[in-house]
């Protein structure tokens, strides 16, 4: 065609075609989305320290392996209570003159999603140990270790945060591992990553591609209600990171559950209180956060976890029924700190 034998016409046509499509498929939708979306009313902006932590998160390329998007599909439910919304990202702007906006949604999930990690894993002790070397707490992890975010000191000074390490990873004798300011900022950022609750009248969008099983259970009504929850899955999801798969915990960091007095005791009050509201009265171990309250456990989850912990690693404790502990769970919920 003669038209295309003219290089001006040819390349102008191609460029216009491409630019036009670009405007419609990228620029206009981008503009439109930043116009129509605003942060949720209850959203809290990042603290100054968390902002510095976010810059570190970006600098270390954490987004290579960690996403920050809970997709609206059933399989992502483990990472957050609701799918991520456009509003969740609406308040993210250009980092500085040199760097672009970092929504940090990510495209690879070699490590777990972190959209709601502040709720899912709030323990500072755990996060610090995990950052120092992930394999201390999660044997199979392939995450890089970040010992360069810690310093060795002969004696911790006032305000220093030290971490407790098991023998295999311990610092040279007489030295203490102290978290640097950067480590604390990074943890502050991680702890600030929480899904903002929606206003009460706003229904959360659905998770799609539900499992058939779940649907069947919902229809099953009363029969399904009685069914026991999977204690092992709950333990793996909520407890194992610290107390470990073998129930031995980590000496010097997290207490063992194997043969634990609290676990085996007939008096359930303290046990359930710890599960729901955390614990901090033993100086030799780290602080336990309010795991149950954060995850919104009902008596069913609590009972499943208790029964799992009382029947494993040689533990042989009395089994409990959800209905029997309902009162205690409701009571300790009221005592939440």
């Amino acid at each position: 065609m003669h038209f295309f034998d003219n290089h001006k016409k040819l390349f102008l046509t191609a460029t216009l075609f491409f630019v036009l499509l670009t405007i419609f498929v990228a620029i206009l939708p981008a503009f439109h989305n930043q116009l129509i979306n605003a942060p949720l009313p209850q959203a809290k902006p990042l603290s100054a320290e968390a902002l510095k932590g976010k810059a570190l998160y970006v600098a270390h390329g954490c987004v290579s392996c960690h996403t920050q998007q809970v997709r609206n599909v059933e399989m992502d439910k483990v990472f957050g209570q609701r799918p991520s919304l456009a509003a969740d990202y609406a308040d993210i702007h250009r980092m500085d003159f040199w760097r672009n906006t970092a929504t940090l949604m990510g495209t690879e999930r070699t490590g777990p999603d972190l959209s709601d990690i502040g709720t899912r894993q709030p323990s500072q002790d755990w996060n610090l140990v995990h950052l120092y070397n992930p394999r201390i707490v999660v044997k199979e992890s392939v995450m890089p270790a970040y010992p360069f975010l810690f310093t060795l000191k002969d004696k911790a000074e006032e305000g220093d945060v030290t971490i407790k390490l098991p023998e295999a990873f311990a610092a040279p004798a007489g030295k203490q591992v102290v978290a640097t300011e950067e480590a604390m900022q990074l943890i502050a950022y991680l702890q600030s990553l929480k899904q903002t609750p929606l206003a009460e009248e706003t229904p959360a969008p659905d998770f799609l591609y539900k499992k058939k099983l779940a649907a069947a259970n919902a229809e099953g009504g009363a029969a399904a209600e009685e069914e026991e929850l999977d204690g092992e899955a709950l333990y793996v999801a909520h407890c194992q990171a610290c107390h470990q798969a073998d129930g031995n915990g980590l000496p010097g960091a997290f207490p063992p559950l194997r043969g634990s007095k609290v676990v085996m005791d007939d008096d359930l009050n303290l046990y359930i209180d710890i599960i729901m509201n955390g614990y901090d009265s033993r100086p030799e171990y780290g602080v336990m956060t309010a795991v149950g309250a954060n995850a919104g456990f009902t008596e069913k989850e609590v009972a499943a976890i208790i029964n799992y912990e009382r029947s494993h690693w040689g533990n042989q404790g009395k089994m409990v029924k959800a209905a029997d502990i309902k009162d205690i769970v409701d009571f300790v919920k009221g005592q939440a700190k």
Partner: peptide, 29 residues
Amino acid sequence: VSAIIFTIVISIVAYVPFWQHGLGETIIQ
């Protein structure tokens, strides 16, 4: 030649900040 023209367009779209707040960044990405 088209590849070079388009890549220049793409880079401009990707590095100009006006349409990259919030979700805009993801769409451009």
